[in-house]
């Protein structure tokens, strides 16, 4: 893609944070030892991911390791990711490894954005995992929207009961989600250079939400 480029995950978080969106605690490490130190600061278990402008699909390149329980696991993961990315894409420039907390117990969502040819910036939300892959159970809105419209958008998906106390589940923080979608829609509206944006997964909890990955494609 000569006319578009992907931001690295730390760059995505910088953009989101600059616009007031909540981002996960994260560190960039440049050596196995530094990674182990930073992981301890986050608290175990952690996730370690490759940071390279050439590696857009991180899992495909063997660039992600999850559920790392201690410092030694982190050091090993660092080296393993380095070598598998190198094997997958020898020309990849490795900027370092990103460390994130391993989120537990939340419901997986996908949140995204897309610049439509006819309508301009749009925001999208759906249930994550198989729900998005198989059932495409998502809803769209033309950005920007307010939190009330975001609530309509949340209620619109077929899987909505899963978010709202279905069969004794804890109801999730739909208010936080609505505010998040509205804020993200304003960001998308203010940044027409964003062609596509994926936050996948976002974990939604009974209180609050957390981003666990971010990918943004911008017009170069």
């Amino acid at each position: 893609m000569p006319d578009a480029l992907f931001l690295t995950e730390p760059a995505c978080y910088r953009l989101l944070a600059a616009e007031g969106l909540p981002i996960p605690p994260h560190f960039l490490a440049h050596s196995p030892e530094e990674a182990a130190e930073k992981a301890a600061l986050l608290g175990f278990p952690v996730v370690l991911k490759i940071v390279s402008p050439q590696v857009v699909h991180k899992s495909e390149a063997g660039g992600v390791r999850v559920a790392l329980a201690d410092a030694e696991a982190v050091r090993q993961a660092y080296r393993a990711v380095e070598s598998s990315v190198h094997a997958f894409r020898p020309e990849a420039v490795i900027e370092g490894m990103l460390l994130l907390p391993q989120f537990q117990g939340g419901t997986e969502l996908i949140v995204g954005g897309l610049r439509d040819i006819q309508f301009g910036p749009t925001v999208m939300f759906g249930l994550g995992g198989i729900f998005v892959e198989l059932l495409k159970d998502v809803s769209f809105r033309v950005a920007p929207i307010d939190a009330a419209e975001a609530s309509e958008m949340i209620r619109e998906i077929k899987g909505y009961p899963l978010l709202n106390g279905f069969r004794g589940r804890l109801p999730l923080d739909l208010e936080a989600l609505a505010v998040f979608l509205a804020d993200l829609s304003r960001l998308l509206d203010r940044h027409p250079e964003i062609e596509e944006l994926d936050l996948n997964p976002v974990f939604l909890f009974p209180e609050g939400l957390a981003l666990a990955d971010a990918r943004i494609k911008v017009t170069a």
Binding site: M1, V56, I110, G112, G113, L114, D116, T122, M124, G126, V132, K136, V138, F140, E196, L197, D198, N200, R215, K217
Partner: peptide
């Protein structure tokens, strides 16, 4: 060139 999930599910 649907590279993102968002784009691939935009029916």
């Amino acid at each position: 060139a649907a590279q993102s999930h968002t784009k691939s599910v935009a029916g």
